[in-house]
């Protein structure tokens, strides 16, 4: 039972990072119908920027909270600039193009960001200087650190804030209108170009938060790290129902828990035939089953053929 509880805790922390990254995918998809393949790489840039800032400030004697805040601020700024630029230069001209064109562009942008980052930061794994000393907390047989708690709480706060924002604010309403029908939203006085740009701002900023979390939690960054993270997060977004913000959160948390449980129990359940080496398969299998049985995802309302 202890083990089970521990696995759930592991899964929830991992899942909250997936969920934050998944938000970026799902918001862009909701409005543009585009898989923004480059989003994972924006998270990567955030992680590397944060690492650089922490490295620069680590000798200054500032309290860790200030250092982290500065790192997060810098990461968000850089990511927003990149996100908006990518939207303006690479995606906007293709908005009315057939589906495959922006998808390929997104793959191209992803490669561009990766190798630009490699030029800037080199190809080594970059490690986080000693900054935090996480204290262990034991709870009901499960063991976790205060850092994990903060990560989870921050993720939850960001998600709650986002939900509120989309539901209640003026821009949020405009976003929903644009999502439903950009043309009519335009007729109603919504500047759809600005709303779409703003979606990228929001997605990149949240991605930046996720990137900083990854750095703090795992303590390392690398120019290639965005790829797999992005893939998992995208899976999470589809699992929850892509285009649906609440669904992305649910999908992220669920995927984290499924992965943890699968890695922890698959070996025993299959009598040793399968092992933790099949962990990644589980993410994809779940995805396939969800798509086949309920193509709109857990919380999506759309029919499959819209895509």
């Amino acid at each position: 039972m202890d083990i089970f509880l521990q696995q759930i805790v592991n899964g929830l922390v991992l899942g909250s990072i997936y969920a934050l990254v998944a938000l970026g995918y799902t918001m862009v998809y909701g409005i543009l119908g585009l898989i923004n393949f480059a989003h994972g790489d924006i998270v990567m840039v955030a992680a590397l920027v944060a690492l650089t800032v922490v490295q620069l400030l680590s000798g200054s004697g500032l309290p860790p909270a200030v250092v982290i805040a500065a790192a997060m601020g810098a990461a968000m700024l850089v990511c927003i600039v990149i996100g908006v630029t990518v939207e303006r230069v690479a995606y906007r001209p293709l908005r009315r193009a057939p589906r495959l064109a922006p998808l390929i562009t997104a793959i191209g942008v992803s490669i561009l960001i990766q190798y630009s980052a490699a030029l800037v930061w080199g190809k080594q794994y970059i490690s986080l200087p000693e900054l935090l000393q996480p204290t262990s907390i034991a709870f009901g047989g499960a063991q976790f650190t205060d850092l994990q708690v903060y990560i989870f709480l921050l993720a939850a706060a960001v998600m709650a804030g986002l939900l509120w924002f989309i539901k209640s604010s003026r821009i949020g309403r405009a976003m929903r209108a644009t999502e439903q029908n950009p043309d009519i939203a335009g007729l109603m006085g919504v500047d759809t170009n600005r709303i779409i740009a703003f979606t990228f701002v929001l997605g990149s900023a949240i991605g930046a938060i996720a990137g900083v979390m990854v750095v703090l939690y795992y303590g390392l960054g690398h120019y290639f790290m965005g790829f797999m993270l992005g893939l998992k997060a995208f899976t999470a977004a589809v699992l929850g129902g892509i285009g649906n913000v609440a669904g992305a959160m649910l999908g992220g948390l669920l995927l984290g828990v499924i992965e943890s449980l699968a890695a922890g129990y698959i070996g025993d359940l299959s009598g040793g035939v399968l092992g933790s080496n099949y962990r990644d398969i589980f993410a994809f299998l779940v995805l396939i089953f969800v798509l086949v049985l309920r193509p709109s995802g857990l919380m999506g309302q759309r029919i499959s053929d819209r895509a």
């Binding site: 898989i35 998808l103 995208f234 994809f284 299998l285 499959s304 895509a307």
Partner: peptide, 16 residues
């Protein structure tokens, strides 16, 4: 039953 992006992501999963 799937088309477009959904199909893309399932085939991606299949490849992996």
């Amino acid at each position: 039953r799937l088309r477009g992006d959904y199909l893309a992501i399932v085939t991606l999963g299949f490849g992996e």
